[in-house]
Amino acid sequence: MRRDAWMRVFGAALLALGLVACEEGRAPVTADGPGGGGGAPGTADAATPPPPAADAGPPTAQRANLRFKGGLRLRNDFAQALELPAAEVCTELGRYDCVDVVHGVTLGGVDPYEKGLYEARPVTGVSTPLAVERMALSACGRAVDRDLAAGEGGVFGALPVADGALTDVEAEAVAATLDGLYKRALLRPVTPSEVAHLRGLYRDVAAKGGAAPARDWAVLACFTTLTSLEMVLY
């Protein structure tokens, strides 16, 4: 193995050791990347590199400067993910736009004309998560109803539904639908674990004995995705 390759491996090993030694099991990611660089030059040949730590999980970002997306971004993201016009994402009482009229400031927006509020609040308000949930439930309900009525296409049209229930929650079409939802909303594939959790949610929903468990589950699977931390923060 060439020297530089050894150094990379050794650096990774040191990083792994650092991760284990870190107080909470995770090394911070710096601007230079995990561990801050590529190991210790000049010492690479002195030790046999241990195997990489198995399943160490993602590193912890030290500068975790996340922000709330805010109502406008979320509305646009929901609309794009679910193929809805932005105006149909969410209205209150069927008339008043959730972002433009009702929850704008709650969702981190400004209100220069009425309130003289020119800058968004730096932190989320107490009721912000609930307002986001209302937006997500509204948008998901519309998209699911549209797709199930069409029986094909859209985000949820491929779900195997008969008499209001999924014919087979283990069907590949269910996983494919969830994968499509995740790719549209979170821009990544769904993981097997996430599919399993959401299939479990279906079983719980169906056990409640409602008339349309497939529809309810599809709305709720969409809801969990659109209100996930990964969706609302960036």
Partner: peptide, 25 residues
């Protein structure tokens, strides 16, 4: 209206189902 996540949202599943989904999430 911003003080409840699902009440008054047309077509929202029952509150107990929403609670189950929140728990999974």
């Amino acid at each position: 209206l911003s003080l409840h996540g699902s009440r008054g949202v047309r077509g929202a599943p029952d509150a107990d189902l929403v609670a189950m989904a929140r728990k999974v999430r």
